[in-house]
Structures are given as structure tokens and as C-alpha cells.
Design a protein around this nucleic acid. Structure first.
Lengths: 356, 356
DNA sequence: TTTACTTTCGTGTGCGGACACGGACGTTAA
DNA sequence: TTAACGTCCGTGTCCGCACACGAAAGTAAA
């Protein structure tokens, strides 16, 4: 039952070191204008006593205002980016008292030019920090270089670009999540079961998340020598042509009548569920990604067996929090942060959704 | 790009309402000593303007100190309660600036008297809030009634007792988690597979968590009409007699040579893993609960197939945070909070552990 | 020795709000 | 009319810290 925190204030340090409070302040903030002698005296005291500045008082007294800008895809209700947005909102509320102002800037994730335009505007503002969803690799790189030149810190969410010096990354280890998808969907299959992989063509440069997932998936098959025991087939569907897609599905199921598992590595699994339902093909297990409202609905109905999810709100919230810790609280933070890979089934989805 | 928070201070309200700052303060804190006229004037302004008090300044200026006491089982390294402990520690660090002081009080979870003793001591201190792990039902009830009489708020973690008026509960929906365990372990079994349920006798009153899990497990069997297709057997093992336990396991495996699945509803699954390993019985899938270090080790080795986990740190952290929100920030909070049910396998455990 | 800088230091004010104290004003009873 | 008391209100101080400004001390040039 020891007493923590004997409450040491700058005033106390000043007395202990035999200098004025102003001097202590200068040492703490490395403002200069301190003689070697005082510097040493203060540092000595600081070493002995473990002084924790009162962050409340600090923020209250500080006149510095922080402007953070978030740069990520525009979105509809209840999709992945919407959750990310919520995380930013939550952070905004929490950190407003610390003089940080958060501004969201959206771009069209299917249009490079929209990204370039918005990112230029962001840069012109000279914010104190930027959070980026690096959908477009090259254009993001350009932005990052400009930011680096101006000493403006930035962080990534969702995906990351290794070549630049970001502050933090929050996202999924997509390779692993593909590996897990394979484990969940393949491990109880009998010999010669057919597995269908559905891939979506997307125009424009995109993140390599889905590719990594695919690679992870294949790695599991390799590791467990399943290649000879399973019949893998794969089909490409369109970005926006539901009818054609449905037809593709129908065809592939006609020519393969033992498909036990259908997997897609993006969040559009609800479209597949819809097609399979309409085509009366409800035998196969369906696996997909992310907690879209529609996906959740099909999961609850039993049409989707597994959803693999991350926690988008956390990604955005944590990245803002870490930026504050870096800039304001001067704390140690870790650069790359993998968000947990959540396995969701009908039975645990309720409790998952209840968490903020 | 709207500007949030036009920064309104008490001073502004005073001017707008044509009264002094002291009067505004009295209205805000319902300190009385305010004429009907001033009261109305201030309330009018407060209605129009949406004033958010600066919590930093508030805590800084407030002389009120909060003393929170946490009452939960003593523990060794790396077990469930250790994580809970960490959550409290984290909360302690974070809220110390808000004048809250957190004190931990441990009791022996196998000894009612130890609980009574500690809980009496806690009550004598007249703390500002108490957090309780209600291992012993009746004795906890007594404490709660005394606390209620003194208007001391309290919250539950891990389990809850409905009859008393607690502030929050954070914990798992154990029935559901048993249901999920069944789904994971039973759904890919072939007909007439044998399933072994391992139960642990414990002396003293205990929480009904494991019972609920068991019930959830059986419910899944019912819902899916598996009773006829599976052979369930069950064995009781001792709390503390490893040798006898090993022997029991050996016996049951001798008389049942088609056991495909072994499940236990508590966190001691690592002991089972050890026995099975030593007995060279590595064919069956093993399922258990909670992220003990030893469990994790066996999960990584492949000896345990699934671990079902909650997030103990979160339980304790959130419950403290909510108490602060209630007492200090006067925010709305929800009473019963089910923590997500996490499904852990070899492949996602790494990323789970990385989260704080 | 005086003047002009430069380096170092101390103090005062304010951030937004809590709280105490004492003062102004009104009411009642002597 | 005045003493005695209650109601209502304004102001000042402090919380722990940041930051600016000006003073003091030291140094170099004239």
C-alpha cells in the first residue's frame, strides 16, 4: 500500500536545485539560456526525483495549437472507412482539450486525381501532422516526401509504404489474415473438395492488401501440402457489373459441382452471398473480410460462415493518440502496429459489435 | 470544414447572462445561493450556447481527491487476474492527473474469510468507489449493501450479481462463449466421434462462469441435434493433484479410443495439454479458455487448437474509466458491457498479444 | 572607466475553472 | 432607528505550468 506520486512540481525542483522556476522551465524545454552550472544542478535533481509534468496543466497553459489532417477515402454509411472516420471523430473529441484540432479530408479512392488534388490542398495548409490512407502508392510517396521536407510528421493507416519515414502504422498483417482464412476454411475439408477463389478486378492503383491475403492463403496450402488434395479454381468478377458477376458464378458452379468453400479476399463478400442465395447455391461455406453492415447481415443469416475483421475505429483512433503522445506528451511509441485479426462467426458477432 | 468549439468560458457566460462569474459557478455546480432571476438568466445562456467545461482546467483547479479501491483475487504472474491487475495499473497512471488514486486489495479466491476480511477493511476506508470481482456471492452481496447504504458507487468485473445496483459490469457472456466453443470444436466432427469434457472440482463458492459456458456448449449440441451423433463423456479432475489427474485422463482414454475433441471450460487447459503430451495422446483437438502464458505456449506448439479469450485488461481499465466518466465527467455510461469473445488459434495469437 | 553587447536569470501574467471569503443588500424584531 | 440575521453576489487566490519581458551579471570594445 505504498503511496505513489509524492507530487513534485516545478517549484519544488527549483528549490531543490537552488535556481529559479524559469531556469527549470528552460532546462525542461531545452530553451537554452542556461549556464552550465544551473543546467547541471537541475539535471541532477531531475535524475534523482522522478518528476512527471502535469499534462493537464501543461496543455492548459500552453498556447500551442495543433492542426491534424486526416486524408482517407470518402465513404457511405456503415462501411470500412466509415468506421475509420468514427475513430477520428472520437479522437477529435478526446484531444480537443489538448489544443488539437482534427480536420478530415476525403478523396475518391477510385480516382487518383482526386487524391492528388486533396493532398495538395492539405500540404498547402502546412498542418502539424497528417494521417494518410495510402491507396495510391506513387502519389502518396510524393506527398510524404514533401511533408518530410517540411518536417511535418505523418502516419499511415490501413496500409503502409516502407520507404518513407512515417511515425506509426496501424493495420492488419494481411498475409497472416489470409493464412488464417485458409485454416478456417480448408482444415475440415474432405479430399478432392473444390475451393473457389473469387477475385475482383479494380481499376486504378490499389493497395496490396488483398494480394497479401491471397499469398497468405496459398502459403497455408503449401505448408500443409494441400495442393494435391484440393481442387482450386478461381474466378474474376467485375467491380460494378452485378449481372455479369452473377452469371460468372452460375457458370463456375455448373462446371464444378463439388464446391465446398468460396472465399474472397475483399469486403464484397455480401455480393457473393446475394448471388449464391439467388442461385440457390447454399451448400458451400463462404468466407470474406470486414464488418460491412451487409456482410454482418449475411453472417447472422448463416450465409457467410466466417468474416475476418480488423478494428477500423481503433486504427484511426490509435494513430491520432500516438501522434499526440509523440508531439505533446513526448512518449515512446511503436512504429508498426498490427491490429488483431478477429475471427467472426454468427455466434460472436453480437458481442463484437457492442464494443466501441 | 466548419469550425468546432468556439471556445466559451465561464467568463463569457457571466457576461452574456449579466451576472458575475461566481454566480455562474454556483449554477453550474448547484451550490445554491442564487436568486431565481440569476438562475434563469444563466440557464437561458447555458441552453443557447453549448458550453463544454474544460475538464483539464476543472481537474486542475478542483481540490477534490478520489480514492478508488479494487477488490480482486491475488494472483501469480501471467494469469488472468494478473492481466486485470495491469488494466487497473494502466487506469491508475492515466487518471492520476484527475486526482484519482487507485488502490488494489487482493484476497484469496479459495478462501471466503480472506475476502470478508479484506472487504471489511475496504469498507472502513470509505473510499469514493469500489471495483469488485464477485467470486463469493453472498459475501459480495453483504459488502454491496453496506456500500449502497453509504452511497459509495461500485462496479463489477468478470461476473455480476444482478440484485444490487452496480454502476457497470464488464465481462464475458459466458453462455455464448460456451456455445462458440462447441461450434468450433464440434462442427467438423464425423459421426460417432467421442467428445471428452473435463471439469475441475473447486472448493468454496465460485463464480458460475464455467457453468454458463458448459450450458452454452450443451445448447449448441441441442440446437444442432448432435446428441445422437456424438458420444459425450466427461471426467472430473482435482484442483491440485496432478498425478491423480493424469491417471484419470489415461483411464478415460483407454476406455474410449475414439476421442477426437477434449474441452475444458476453465483456464487450466495447459495442464491437460501437458498430460496428453506426456501420455502421447496427441490426436484429439484440445479447446480451452483464457490467455495464460502456458496456454499460449501450448497453442503455439499446436497442442491446443483453440483458445477462447476475453480481454481482462480492458475489463478493469474500462470499468475505472467509466467510474471517472460518471463521477468526474458526468457522462452517460452503459451498465452491462460484454467484452468481445475472441477466438485464438496458432496463427493469430501473435497479433493479439501485441495489442495493449 | 565607461559604453555596448551578450549571456543568464527571476518574476509576473494567464490558461479555465473551483472555491472561499467577505461585502452588499434586504428583512425582521427590538 | 438600529441591531441582528439571512440571502445573494463579486472578487481574489490557487491549481501547475508556459512563456514573455525585463533585470542582472558578465564580457568585450572604446
Amino acid at each position: 500500500m505504498k503511496e505513489i506520486n509524492p507530487k513534485i512540481r516545478i517549484k519544488d525542483i527549483a528549490i531543490l536545485a537552488g535556481v529559479s522556476e524559469g531556469t527549470v522551465d528552460r532546462v525542461l524545454h531545452e530553451r537554452g539560456d542556461v549556464s552550465a552550472k544551473s543546467l547541471e544542478a537541475v539535471n541532477k535533481v531531475l535524475d534523482e526525483i522522478d518528476y512527471t509534468p502535469n499534462l493537464l496543466a501543461r496543455s492548459l497553459a500552453s498556447k500551442k495549437q495543433y492542426r491534424f489532417v486526416c486524408l482517407f477515402p470518402a465513404h457511405q454509411n456503415a462501411d470500412y472507412w466509415h468506421s475509420v472516420d468514427n475513430g477520428f471523430t472520437q479522437a477529435a473529441r478526446e484531444f480537443t482539450h489538448y489544443n488539437v484540432h482534427i480536420e478530415k479530408r476525403y478523396f475518391n479512392q477510385y480516382d487518383v486525381f482526386s487524391f492528388v488534388e486533396v493532398s495538395n490542398a492539405v500540404f498547402e495548409q502546412k498542418p502539424d501532422a497528417v494521417f494518410i490512407a495510402p491507396i495510391f502508392r506513387n502519389e502518396t510517396l510524393e506527398l510524404c516526401e514533401k511533408l518530410t521536407r517540411e518536417d511535418i510528421p505523418f502516419s499511415f493507416i490501413d496500409s503502409l509504404i516502407e520507404e518513407v519515414n512515417f511515425l506509426t502504422y496501424y493495420g492488419q498483417n494481411s498475409f497472416q489474415s489470409g493464412y488464417i482464412a485458409a485454416k478456417l476454411s480448408l482444415s475440415s475439408l474432405s479430399d478432392h473438395a473444390q475451393v473457389l477463389i473469387v477475385r475482383t478486378q479494380r481499376k486504378g492503383a490499389v493497395s496490396n492488401q488483398t494480394l497479401n491475403r491471397y499469398n497468405g492463403f496459398m502459403q497455408f496450402i503449401n505448408d500443409n501440402h494441400l495442393a494435391g488434395h484440393l481442387e482450386l479454381s478461381s474466378v474474376e468478377i467485375k467491380d460494378n457489373d452485378e449481372l455479369a458477376n452473377k452469371e460468372s458464378i452460375r457458370n463456375i458452379f455448373e462446371s464444378n459441382n463439388n464446391i465446398k468453400t468460396v472465399i474472397t479476399f475483399n469486403s464484397r463478400v455480401h455480393q457473393l452471398a446475394k448471388h449464391l442465395e439467388e442461385l440457390n447455391l447454399t451448400d458451400a461455406k463462404l468466407i470474406g473480410y470486414d464488418l460491412l453492415e451487409q456482410n454482418v447481415a449475411y453472417l447472422k443469416k448463416g450465409a457467410i460462415s466466417f468474416l475476418i475483421a480488423q478494428r477500423p475505429e481503433n486504427q484511426s483512433y490509435f494513430t491520432v493518440r500516438d501522434m499526440c503522445r509523440e508531439l505533446i506528451f513526448k512518449e515512446k511509441i511503436t512504429k508498426v502496429n498490427y491490429v488483431p485479426i478477429d475471427i467472426l462467426i454468427k455466434e460472436n458477432i453480437e458481442y463484437y459489435l457492442e464494443m466501441k
